[in-house]
Design a protein around this nucleic acid. Structure first.
Lengths: 215, 215, 215, 215
DNA sequence: CATGAATGAGCGTTCATTCAT
DNA sequence: GATGAATGAACGCTCATTCAT
């Protein structure tokens, strides 16, 4: 398993409710409803009343589980990185084979496909977060880049890839951005490609380029 | 020269000032100031009074040159595509050579480097636009994708590239997204790479992939 | 009882407060305060903040009970016609006697005397209403005219009055306008006449004219 | 000729233009355009730009002929009373005959028919006038009432009418209000009655009432 | 005399947040 | 724990008026 520390407790969202399992349930409703609204109208055009209503409780109750509207956005981001951790970091190894990278790409792209609304919302609205929360999100983002850097570097070290140190960093970013592209360009890609197509073509072009030998 | 119709006059922003050249001047001030503010605080956190002040005139004067706050955002987007048209579309040919594509990539990436704040603002806030204005922006975006598709297809037709029809579309999006990446990931890339580095590495990886033969 | 359908529910002003009885209470405060202000300064010179303050709550609370400033004006008009309905339409019969008409005039003029500020505001500002709301008010106005037309026609039918069909309509309008006159010309009439004087003289002149036989 | 002093010079609207005949011309355009706009949208919903445009000159020029927007309203009122003076006061005598009154009613009602938009605007918007200007308008209004009072009183003195002193005042107001009714109730009366019908019926009912002997 | 660009006080309305019940 | 009525700071936008040209 590779890197990725657990959620910093200092970044956790305060709640005045004591029952932990109730918090869990309510926040799941909250995130689910908020993502839908933010995707549709954006963070600023969505009111807290709408968030509460969509989640199925009153405005008063909403504020029992968050302190500010921004907390809702943070919960969404945090939730994403929890999933990233669970499905990507855990059980990813770096022995220096192309197959490892392909698997990681597969997992990452599949995750984005499953949570594409969440990802779109996060990338589109994260600049709204407070400095502190934004830092947390950027750190998580860098950890994802670092994961792919590690996988690529292992391949370089094992001689499987022959790219320079500089290119490793860029290639890692490249993969991350290609993942985002699937979420952000749905309007242009959907209908023409399945996620499976997309993974295959992008992986192929990543390794071999558009004029790479296909023999 | 390739495609890309001129700005639709029906999409132009109304002004109550009659002097055309004065409008030109004022709007340049306006765009310049607004980009700075939107980049820093986002569209919704920026007030119209701040926009006016940054542009160097009063709130009343601001509204002599736009009708709504959204118009400011549209002016920014429109301005970008005017530049795109001037620097990218004009004088780009599609004879089917790799050099043509490299030149177009160079021009596109350089343009983004010059106007990276504008591009970031546009991509981050364009969902705020009205349906009509958004459509206009998406159309312009698709024209850019189509430009690279045309260049790539010409290479496929001439036998220079051997990728399938499906991959052509994806590869075109790919180039566009790589350009955006330079604007959006400055925080991670700047300091490590110059725009020249970036263009070279990305072009290289685009054509030959990370394991492509570099002999 | 004569004509006059109940308030169209579709014309009701929306409120975001759920407690019906609270709405009732707050709107009464609202109408009372707003009439005072509108009478004094007119609709356009009165600000929503002043309305809220006069009613005894904050600007935020005001907008929990109305959607637009125009709603305040509509509430005033609606309130008037509710009273008109309660005090004039209910229990008015049309058997064809002069006494019936005199009673109706008495009730109508007394009502105007009780709510003269409301009536003045309504007639002075109703052109400010939206097309839809104005239509509603005009319909109510026509129902009042129709009430007196019915009473007069009954007298014509019974032979008590000998005026032509055309004159019936005009006479009905005449009564309505004489009522308004009491509200609008207070500055000239008050002090010289009581409402009782006014009713008596106007009724008399209406039936017998200024040269009518008084023997 | 009966009462009605000429325009108080202290109430005249100041203009920075010196050429008197030019002022005359411009103000006529002004009044004509403004009445149209005020009738349609009301004083407050009409902007000074619209007034200038409708009158056929620029906003800057408008302010060469008035000092404030309110002046426009005052000019309209003043213009009305100039006409009233010209067509009603001049050459009206008070010998104590019914024919004199009928002639005055005829002149007054005809005047209102000719200038009904002006009258509607004046009565609907005059409360917007400054205290001083309002006083002037009310004084003019009272002079009109006084005119009819004088005519009526002459008839009482000559024994033609047998109404009390109190009723004289009311009857005078009555005539004035009936005139206004023709302007204000056009929406209900027009199409059913011509101004000739209206004058005849109202004069008749005024003198003889609805049950008066018509033998 | 005529123009119209510039000004900024002031308006109607929204909405995150609180707190008494 | 849950509710929703109350709050008021803050926003986008308008428009009467001025004044340099």
């Amino acid at each position: 398993m590779i890197g990725g520390a657990r959620v910093d407790s200092k970044c956790e969202v305060k709640s005045s409710v004591k029952d932990r399992s109730l918090i869990e349930v309510r926040r799941e409703q909250l995130i689910c409803g908020a993502v839908k609204l933010f995707k549709e109208k954006g963070f600023h055009r969505t009111t807290t009343r709408e968030i509460a209503q969509q989640a199925g409780f009153s405005i008063g109750t909403l504020y029992e589980y968050i302190r500010t509207k921004e907390d809702v956005l943070f919960l969404i981001c945090d939730n994403i990185y929890n999933e990233v951790h669970r499905r990507l970091f855990t059980a990813t190894t770096a022995q220096g084979t192309v197959e490892e990278i392909e698997l990681a790409i597969y997992r990452y792209f599949t995750l984005i496909d499953d949570m594409s609304d969440e990802f779109v919302v996060m990338y589109q609205e994260s600049k709204t977060l407070s400095k502190e929360a934004l830092q947390y999100v950027l750190k998580k983002e860098m950890e994802m880049v670092a994961l792919f850097e590690k996988l690529l570097q292992a391949c370089v070290d094992s001689g499987t890839l022959r790219i320079g140190r500089k290119e490793v960093g860029l290639a890692a970013h490249h993969i991350i951005v290609q993942g985002q592209m699937w979420a952000f360009r749905r309007w242009a890609l959907y209908g023409q490609y399945t996620i499976a197509d997309y993974i295959q073509v992008q992986t192929d072009q990543f390794f071999r380029g558009v004029i790479g030998d296909r023999s």
